[in-house]
């Protein structure tokens, strides 16, 4: 029998755990945006070496499952003498994986701009720096918002993976709850509701941003 009270009871511990879900995905995307910007600069660089570095970075991170990467980082850090809480490794891994996707999103957005946009800037005598900051980036960023929100939603879901290295986020908390109450269905359903609530909010945020940035 489905127990409504166990279902409702599960929300409090899971909501507490949601802070870690948000921390991992929020910090992950924030750092990922910064690293992704660097990778994107490399990918668009004139130097073949830098382009190769970016290509290797992107294809490794997109080609290997995030679960495996988390485990690699988790076991690698102690070996190279870095002793940090599991949450730190989880955030760093998430950020690095996100950076690969984000750099591709930005590269795509920049390449999608018509050539005439920069040509108009060049023809008028603008410096490359100004044409980047005034013409290309504002448009590329606006263009990439839906995909960035989509990436953030994927990260929220992917953050369930960091439960394997012991971070007490929603998924791990629901496992713990199920173990204590012997009510797995209620615990996991509550987890599902929380994930859905978070991602519906993010989708709404995305629509609002898109609407605001629309030209």
């Amino acid at each position: 029998m489905f127990s409504l009270s166990s279902f409702l009871d599960a929300f409090w511990p899971l909501t507490m755990a949601a802070r870690y879900t948000l921390l991992v995905s929020g910090l992950g995307i924030a750092l990922g945006l910064v690293i992704g910007a660097f990778v994107c600069v490399l990918a668009l660089s004139k130097s073949r070496v830098w382009r190769t570095v970016a290509a290797v970075w992107v294809s490794y991170l997109r080609g290997v499952p995030m679960l495996v990467q988390l485990l690699v980082v988790f076991f690698l850090l102690p070996v190279i003498g870095i002793d940090v809480p599991a949450i730190v490794g989880a955030v760093v891994t998430t950020a690095i994986v996100a950076s690969a996707y984000i750099s591709e999103i930005w590269r795509g957005a920049i390449m999608a701009l018509p050539k005439g946009q920069t040509e108009a800037a060049i023809a008028i005598g603008m410096r490359p720096r100004d044409s980047w900051t005034r013409i290309i980036l504002p448009q590329a960023v606006a263009l990439s918002i839906p995909q960035l929100i989509n990436e953030l939603i994927l990260l929220v879901k992917a953050s369930s993976l960091v439960s394997v290295v012991g971070v007490m986020e929603i998924t791990r908390a629901s496992q713990a709850q199920a173990g204590v109450t012997f009510r797995p269905l209620e615990a996991y359903l509550a987890a599902a509701c929380l994930y859905l609530a978070i991602n519906l909010c993010l989708a709404a945020l995305g629509r609002w941003l898109e609407h605001r940035m629309a030209v």
């Binding site: 008028i124 005598g125 603008m126 005034r134």
Partner: peptide
């Protein structure tokens, strides 16, 4: 750049900057 700034160019596809108003497009240069 200095020489280009004295040569105006008009394109088939206009190439206006879509994120700026008409006035901002003209003021930018």
């Amino acid at each position: 750049r200095q020489m280009r700034s004295t040569i105006g160019m008009v394109f088939q596809q206009f190439n206006l900057w879509p994120h700026m108003t008409a006035q901002e497009n003209v003021a930018e240069g």
